[in-house]
């Protein structure tokens, strides 16, 4: 017996929720970005599973996943550059202490 589609979707949902927990509960800004990466991977698993199970001849799911790769890479690059720049200025990476723009 092969693997039903629902197994992949449940795995992707679990990965997404673990990432969500990471984003909401970590102090360090870089750890928050790690959680975001987990969420993006969960989404990608979903896309590729749907591509394979629903319509493997037309390639829309894989194209979507490739664009998500590109977006994730761009976001991580800019996000980490921002965090390093903030660290140079105010010497902290804890997200709660970067509050110069709060009123």
């Amino acid at each position: 017996m092969s693997i039903p589609l629902s197994w992949y979707l449940i795995l992707a949902a679990a990965l997404f929720c673990i990432g969500l927990f990471g984003v909401l509960s970590r102090k360090n800004a870089i750890a928050i970005l790690l959680g975001i990466e987990l969420m993006l991977n969960g989404v990608n698993i979903n896309l590729v599973a749907f591509w394979r199970y629903l319509d493997p001849v037309r390639i829309a799911g894989q194209v979507f996943a490739v664009i998500v790769f590109a977006v994730a890479a761009a976001e991580v690059a800019v996000g980490l550059a921002l965090i390093i720049s903030v660290y140079r200025r105010s010497n902290t990476v804890v997200a709660d202490e970067i509050d110069l723009m709060k009123w």
């Binding site: 017996m1 092969s2 693997i3 039903p4 589609l5 629902s6 979707l9 449940i10 949902a13 679990a14 997404f16 929720c17 673990i18 969500l20 927990f21 909401l24 509960s25 394979r52 199970y53 493997p56 001849v57």
Partner: peptide, 29 residues
């Protein structure tokens, strides 16, 4: 955050299991 994560997971899993169309297996390419 943990309870929120568990709630979202429960919601998604019930949605997935509730759909009979998601029980299909992969066809050969």
């Amino acid at each position: 955050a943990a309870s929120l994560g568990v709630l979202v997971l429960a919601g998604l899993v019930s949605l997935i299991i509730g759909q009979p169309a998601f029980n299909r297996t992969a066809e050969v390419i």
